[in-house]
């Protein structure tokens, strides 16, 4: 801005052959660059702090969960479902692998190999984030009371407004009875 103003208001500047004086452009560019760099810390401070990130993974002992039971634990401020599925529930889920699914996935893709019994899901409806109730709905999986999404026993969306299946978080079995999520 300043260099144009020089020309507009300073008659003497007319003597200068280079109307767009390099030094003004350089100074303004440096000011803009410095200003932009200074903005970054003010934005970055809104990202999760180190102590928040430190608690972002949890370990859970599966022996506490009875067959056909589900526990809900708090993970990163969201509910996390860990469900101990019965053979019937697993069979029902596998049977529907070929059905017309909105978000096609086989049941085997949704649990760890050889651990079909354990289903670990983020307990947020993929529609708008309500917490689905366990065992409800037409498919015996989960039912979201907010807007009526039905999930099957593999957590796949079957009916209702939700666009995708319940999310499987990153997790790993530390031993046969212990999982680490996140």
């Amino acid at each position: 801005m300043a260099h144009t103003a020089v020309d507009a208001t300073n008659p003497a500047a007319g003597d200068d052959p280079s109307r767009r004086d390099f030094i003004h452009i350089a100074a303004i560019t440096a000011a803009a660059g410095g200003g932009l760099a200074a903005v970054w810390p003010f934005v970055a401070q809104m990202n999760p702090a180190a102590d928040t990130l430190a608690l972002a993974s949890v370990e859970y002992d599966l022996t506490k969960i009875e067959p056909a039971q589900q526990v809900t634990i708090n993970w990163r401020g969201k509910p996390l479902f860990i469900r101990n599925r019965t053979p019937e529930q697993i069979a029902a889920a596998v049977k529907d692998d070929g059905a017309a699914l909105r978000d096609p996935q086989t049941d085997a893709e949704r649990h760890k190999e050889g651990k079909a019994q354990w289903l670990v899901l983020v307990g947020s409806c993929t529609h708008l984030g309500c917490v689905p109730t366990v065992g409800g709905g037409e498919y015996g999986g989960w039912f979201c009371p907010c807007h009526g999404s039905h999930y099957d026993t593999s957590g796949r969306i079957r009916k209702g407004p939700a666009p995708t299946n319940l999310v499987v978080p990153d997790y790993a079995f530390l031993s046969d009875t212990k999982v680490k999520i996140g």
């Binding site: 970054w40 810390p41 003010f42 970055a44 401070q45 702090a49 180190a50 102590d51």
Partner: peptide, 30 residues
């Protein structure tokens, strides 16, 4: 920006400032 992380309570004010200094991204700078 600091007010986004600070806690105005006698029990937590001091530790919330140290939280800013240690854990918040660029908190020490701010």
């Amino acid at each position: 920006v600091l007010a986004m992380h600070y806690t105005p309570s006698a029990a937590a004010a001091f530790t919330s400032v140290e939280h800013i200094m240690r854990d918040v991204n660029y908190g020490w700078l701010l």
